[in-house]
């Protein structure tokens, strides 16, 4: 099947892309890797009037580390991040999640910012952004703004981006010392979207108690779901099996799964609990060992 006819423009610069978008408005879509957008267009599930191709923008393909933060540009593809040693060192959660995302073909084309702009709650990356405390850098002709991941994902396939804005960069804070992270999911097959998945990040204080905690789940509601109350239960306490079990039980209460063709909502809720327990257990062990991941 061929997609419906539409206009296509290759962006010559970021400003050119934004100008085109500002002119065309919501009918236009940015095309990055296209690994979600093009299949949707092939089956007419998406019919943008115009595509603004970001692929010529080589200057948006970068991974940098400075001031204790990891920055990834809008044109940076999964495979580059997956194979970047700096990423594994600074934000192991991201390194751990990437092999779970589809298959090599998709990772060779798809971009992180494209995925996040698509805001599919079934995808692993939005949950990882929440757990990692990422900030999203939105840019438009009118200027820049930084949006916390927690404020970025508004609803199913809906973000805080304005029609004239582009997600040009994501910024992930480096993990503090005595931290441990874990991403874990259950998918029907390797590479499929998870039936549910959990990203957890824990940092111990000087006394070995939980100094900070964040937990976020994918495919557990209309957006990536932060299990904030579950994380709160852990803070200040010892990360033992009992505390982790209590947090996992709380996380199970915080999710809003809908069920889908692959599993029931009950099962997703069940997984949310089990996965949270397993993810926290691993993350805590890693934090104690000082291995991060």
């Amino acid at each position: 099947m061929k997609p419906a006819p539409f206009r296509y423009a290759a962006a010559q610069s970021l400003e050119h892309a934004l100008a085109l978008k500002a002119e065309a408005g919501e009918e236009a879509r940015f095309l990055a890797g296209g690994q979600s957008l093009i299949p949707a267009m092939n089956f007419r599930l998406a019919q943008p009037a115009m595509l603004i191709d970001l692929n010529p923008l080589d200057d948006l393909d970068y991974i940098t580390v400075d001031n204790g933060a990891l920055r990834i540009g809008a044109r940076t593809r999964y495979s580059r991040v997956e194979h970047c040693a700096e990423v594994a060192r600074w934000q192991p959660l991201l390194a751990e999640v990437l092999p779970n995302i589809a298959h090599p073909q998709i990772r060779n084309r798809g971009t992180l910012c494209g995925n996040l702009s698509n805001a599919d709650p079934a995808s692993e990356l939005p949950a990882v952004m929440l757990a990692a405390g990422a900030r999203m850098h939105a840019h438009s002709a009118g200027g820049d703004r930084w949006i916390a991941a927690a404020d970025f994902f508004i609803n199913l396939f809906e973000t805080a981006l304005q029609p004239d804005e582009m997600l040009v960069e994501i910024e992930l804070p480096a993990l503090p010392a005595r931290s441990g992270t874990c991403f874990i999911e259950v998918a029907r097959r390797p590479g499929d979207y998870a039936m549910a998945g959990v990203a957890a990040s824990l940092t111990l204080d000087a006394n070995g108690r939980c100094g900070s905690a964040s937990i976020a789940l994918c495919n557990a509601g209309p957006t990536p779901m932060a299990a904030a109350a579950a994380a709160q239960l852990l803070i200040g306490g010892v990360l033992d099996a009992e505390a982790i079990a209590a947090a996992a039980a709380q996380a199970q209460e915080e999710v809003e799964p809908n069920g889908n063709v692959h599993c029931t909502a009950d099962y997703q809720r069940h997984l949310a609990g089990v996965l949270t327990r397993r993810a926290l257990t691993s993350a805590a062990a890693r934090a104690r060992q000082g291995t991060s991941a």
């Binding site: 099947m1 296509y8 095309l31 296209g34 690994q35 089956f43 191709d53 073909q105 998709i106 084309r109």
Partner: peptide, 24 residues
């Protein structure tokens, strides 16, 4: 499949495998 699901269309783009059915 024309949707990037089956991989039958896999080709190399600058030496890297991609699904040609979802590459413009």
């Amino acid at each position: 499949c024309d949707a990037g699901d089956c991989g039958a269309c896999t080709v190399l783009l600058d030496g890297k495998q991609v699904c040609s059915c979802i590459t413009a």
